[in-house]
Amino acid sequence: MAFTNEQLERYSRHIILNEIGVKGQKKLLEGSVLIIGAGGLGSPAALYLAAAGVGHIGIADADVVDLSNLQRQVIHTTADLDKPKVESARETMEAINPDVKVTTYHDFIASDNIMDIIKDYDFILDGTDNFPAKFLINDACVMAKKPFCHAGILRFGGQLMTYVPEEGVPCYRCVFKNPPPKDAVPTCKQAGVIGAMAGIIGCLQAMEAIKYLTGAGELLTGTLLTYDGLTNEFRRVKLPRDVHCAVCGEEPTITELIDYEQAECNGITSDDYK
């Protein structure tokens, strides 16, 4: 694959970087990332991955754009209200970079479709806002041996961790075991989140995807990175793999995907675990 002058110009700030270079940019253009959730986390991740020239981006979300989304879901605009989020996201990504092929999934991700969707992608971003989806994505990625980046945001806090199917790397379930009871966490309408938090954590997810595809630097594997926006504190918490983990452990008890019941209004990621 030879770059056109336009591509050399578009990606010049990447190609100049020794960690990326021509080879890294080609890997991005030949790479694929699935973003599950076109919301607060998925929006900035999709924007930066499209701008970076990731050749194939999948985006999955069943919702339409709602006025209350626009405070943080920056891939959508006021003109996109009531449009399926995946369509709005596709239009924005294609407008940013015609090199990117976008595939949309206007559907809820569930046990009966997730394996078929993730199989086509090199890396998966969890940009969902509820525990049933987070555990489903984790279990599916562990079973399909797919690398993915978990993230969650709440109020002024955020966290992320990357999983790759390699020896000794913990999965999300190694750390969090099971979804909390439905009523134990605030629902999305009852707990706020600062919009910029979605930007920070979503961009960190995009960074993980770019590092995975290019091989640059170190991934957040075995490490939960947390950020407190009020105190400006980033923390890296080292986490071991759990050999007794129900899905990635030596004797897994979860061998089929589970659709956990969702709270009335989707439960959201809690930082109460921190």
């Binding site: 770059f3 010049s12 270079g21």
Partner: peptide, 17 residues
């Protein structure tokens, strides 16, 4: 000669790679 900074260097770097 058909491109401007920084693509001048980028194009040379690509050819060297």
């Amino acid at each position: 000669t058909d491109v401007v900074c920084p693509v001048t260097f980028v194009k040379a770097k690509v050819a060297l790679e």
